[in-house]
Design a protein around this nucleic acid. Sequence first.
RNA 1: GGGGAAGUCGCAUAGUGGCAAUUGCAACAGACUGUAAAUCUGUCCUCUUCGGAGUUCAGUGGUUCGAGUCCACUCUUCCCCA
Length: 388
Amino acid sequence: MTSEPTLHNDQPFRFTIEHSDPNSSARAGVLHTDHGAIPTPIFMPVGTVGSVKAVHQHELCNDIDAKIILGNTYHLYLRPGMGTLKAAGGLHRFMGWERPILTDSGGFQVFSLAQNRKIKEEGCTFKSHIDGSRHTFTPEGVVDIQRTIGSDIMMAFDECPPGESPYNYAKKSMELTHRWMDRCVERYKETEPLYGHRQALFPIVQGCKYADLRRMSAEHAASKDAYGYAIGGLAVGEPTEVMYEMIEVVNAILPTDRPRYLMGVGTPANILEAIERGVDMFDCVMPTRNGRNGMLFTWNGTVNIKNKKWETCFEPINPDSSALADRSYTYAYLHHLIKSEELLGLQIASIHNLTFYLDLVRTARQHIAEGDFTSWKGSIVDRLMRRV
RNA sequence: GGGGAAGUCGCAUAGUGGCAAUUGCAACAGACUGUAAAUCUGUCCUCUUCGGAGUUCAGUGGUUCGAGUCCACUCUUCCCCA
């Protein structure tokens, strides 16, 4: 947290691929930003309102070693609001985080707050979930908000339709997302960063579970010649196999020399399968939310720490972990804390899961570099999702 | 010693003639994928082929077609006065 941002004046958002897996589409790279370099594949903890829930920036940086985190345009716009963020000098300074930040555009809230919004060509009108007030998000406005937040990577405004949407709706929705994408790119080109560091804009590929729509969308996104691309609208109700198939379809079209970000995914197994199919960046609420609800991810599978069987397990949560919390506390203690609704339990569980997720992608990267990613993945993937 | 109140599935509660019986907590499971989530769901007397079946409301006896509910006595607990 004390290092100065490294400026790369020559090539903004340079993405270098250091290793490509000989047996799959997996690759290990580095994405350079003005707030530091991001090794890929990478997992990005979700910090919706300027906080990765229950985790201090200190642990995020030193124990978990998160290289980049997420913020959310919709949530930050409603609270604390743009006035505060501008006066603070952007989100990095406001929250005391000097590494990169990616902001989601609010497109996911178009999906998750479906009862409180109305979609039109111009944009999307929301009723605030906090006070019921009305707000309109347009593609241009969403870029402006992300300029004010000062995120290193901004996301285009999209519509994220449900996984089981019928073809006609999926097509109309995708076409709207494309028009919004065009407008975001226009606004991006005609505006400047506010705080002295550069910002990228990632377009988002949509198209639901329909391969022809996904191809069309990937081609539209690729035509923007962006610093990176996102795959959205997956893990929203469709079967996992369909998700993997859509990733393959899209990554066959997206430029290989730019990072690909699979939005909102997922389980440890999902992440390894997507890495194998050429995805570089991930985010998901699972490690933090499920952690708060008593679920731990480990190399041996998932643990429900609330279960009685952990009552007297006095083993450290993970003696080999980079996180102090993992090394210092036992399953039995965490069981007690979570059962007692102690806030420390939420913190330890969240730190544990995020440390595991970062360890997962770090280990995957190492195996890509060593050239045995697919056999390693094959030997481990089933174990990750079984119950301990 | 006299007077009063009360005993319901771990705990606490609802119930005043049709009840396997309310609600909360606890307990035990499950869910969670670009965070309206420190949230939500289920089970929670016994057995079950999940359709049901069998035993319950301190105890015993009674009234009634029918009793957790009404009556009598017994046991236990609490409060007030001596």
